[in-house]
Simulated assay, not measured.
Amino acid sequence: MQKLKPNHIPAKGWKGGFLKKNPEMNYTTPNLGSLDFNDNLHKIQNIKRQQRVLWPEFTWETKKGQKDPKRCFQMFAPDISRVGYDNTGQSWSIICPQQGTFIPGVGTFNVEVTVKGQKGWVDEANKSLAVDMIVKPKIWFSPAANESAYGKLLWSIFELNNLGYCFPSEKTKAIELNTYQTTSQKTTTITLRDGLFMEGDLPPFTIHKEAWSHANVEVEIGEIDLNHSDLVNEFNTIMMKAFNIGSGNMLQQGNILAWNVWFDAPSIVNRKEWENHADVWRRSIDVDHCSPDGPGTDPRFADGSIFNVEKELFAEVINEIKKFIKKHL
């Protein structure tokens, strides 16, 4: 495992100028409407510089809608996420965060907030940025889960029904969720902006004063994509329930998932490393459930106490899995 080395001094080569040519994209109310969304992987050749998210701090409510919603905080693995841009400041690609959640009796679910498209700018001179994204959380089994007793039985059901191509054994077959800026408007454009979510009311363990700059993202979790057969839709609904039990309802429909991204200083991009970065991280979590750059933190409440899942909830979802297996085998 590599030792994480933060950058404290920006790399040479910054020119700027993108904002000067596009004055409507100002600092206070950035309007990125004149830009087209770029596929997140198609413009890597344009990237010259990057800012690494060394401290991706996520927060959500574990008991949404209750009198005490039990807000949880968790730092995902360091340096999985990055924003990449050219020397003038135009943003061309964002590497998305990933995490794993363990379900007793089944194994580990991987979750990735996949960026489907992005556009925007970075201004190093003011330690500022504005990026719009379209994102979809994806959930799939790690290889160990595929080899568990329940995993094998579930896979066999898909194979017997000629649905092996739908079993979420890898990212390309993942269960997908929709996300919105607000569900009332059904706006799918998610914004990365300056400032902090819950600024002034954050637990001390989520604040990283050693960071070069910071920004925040806030999304409302939408519905599961139910574009498959009844069997697959039934299975995906049960698996999402299992994931949300294990993660404290992180991706519960209607929940707000927010994260503060704490950057180190800008550095020069190695394009080959950029292209391989997410795959290297994903292979690491698949093999040994750890990050190449060190682990994240356990989910915690604001007082620092660790979030623990009630065993009864795990038993409930395992019972649902058993019923599904009995029904379809």
Results as ranks from 00 to 15, higher is better:
P6R: 13
K12H: 04
W14H: 04
G17I: 01
P23C: 10
M25S: 11
L35F: 02
L41D: 09
K43C: 14
R49V: 11
T59H: 12
E61V: 10
F73K: 07
G84Q: 05
Y85V: 08
G105D: 07
T108G: 14
T108H: 14
F109S: 00
Q118A: 11
W140E: 02
A144F: 15
A144P: 02
S148E: 02
F158D: 11
E159C: 01
F167C: 11
P168Y: 00
S169A: 01
T183L: 12
K186Y: 04
G200T: 08
T206W: 08
W212S: 05
V217P: 06
V219D: 05
I221C: 01
E223M: 04
D230T: 12
V232E: 07
N236W: 11
N236P: 03
K241W: 06
G248S: 10
M250D: 09
M250L: 09
L251N: 14
I256E: 08
L257Q: 09
P266W: 01
N270H: 00
R271T: 10
R271I: 08
E273F: 14
V280H: 15
W281L: 01
D286C: 03
G294S: 05
R300P: 03
F301R: 09
E310H: 00
E310C: 06
E312Q: 10
A315C: 05
H328I: 10
